[in-house]
Amino acid sequence: MQVPAPFEYERATSVDHAIGLLGRLGGSARLVAGGHSLLPMMKLRLTDLEYLIDINDLHADLGHVRVERDEVRIGAMVRHRELLESAELARALPVFAEAERVIADPVVRNRGTIGGSLCQADPSEDLSAVCGALDAVCVIRGADGERLVPMDGFHRGPYETAVGPDEMLTEVRIPLHPGGSSAFEKVERRAGDWAVASVAAAVQVEDGLITGARVGMAAVGPDTVTVPGLSEALRGQRPSEELYTHAAEIAARACDPATDTRGSADYKRHLAGELTRRTLRRAVAGTEGKA
């Protein structure tokens, strides 16, 4: 039987209350959102915390999906199921539904949140790859106000983020581009499992030329939220199978997978390349007739 070590439970009633509690209780306090990453770690005694601050009541403030003219704003407490089922989000950024369909299982998706997924900074988190490809910006709030950290600098390594001990993630903002499209692909061993490898790609195409491209990967190395050098290699180019092959090589080189029960490092590296090729191909196809 797995039992977490003892702690004091507090429930935040507002974002300011949560931040106040974090400030007062110091480094021994942790937030819990869906709890589907944190509670398993607590059961394995992989965390040491004295206070647990439950932010589930903040869904009223942080549970929004707002599609605006040039960006989409997603509150940190939006649950996987809500990302999957939001018709508005599916119209603006269908890549979210594509990914959510294969993230965990429907019951887990009822609890897990986008905020928890990004803040867990597990290198296998599919939403990190999606948000990396989409060039998302994380809104971090502390006692002194808000600061914006792009997804590129949000993860400081496995299980470490730019969020300070007395701060919290409140929102994720995703820029919308005319002529933009994106795609997600995941290989998993069985329904509901973590990825053997997953890749998200986002592109913008104008007058037949790629004006922007990003790829994010999960489960193929400690920090693969964006593939470095890939945007530079694709920008200004005309989409073609040769170009996707070149991008696949960049992605395969950029990853650093480990051999484990999900597959060998070589296999995962192969997937990183192949899924990059496939997602880019589909993302470019998605831009056709858009701008």
Binding site: R11, G35, L52, D54, V107, V108
Partner: peptide, 12 residues
């Protein structure tokens, strides 16, 4: 909504 009660605290 269905939840896995081994991964929810009673307090929650």
């Amino acid at each position: 909504e269905p939840v896995k009660s081994c991964t929810v605290l009673a307090a929650m």
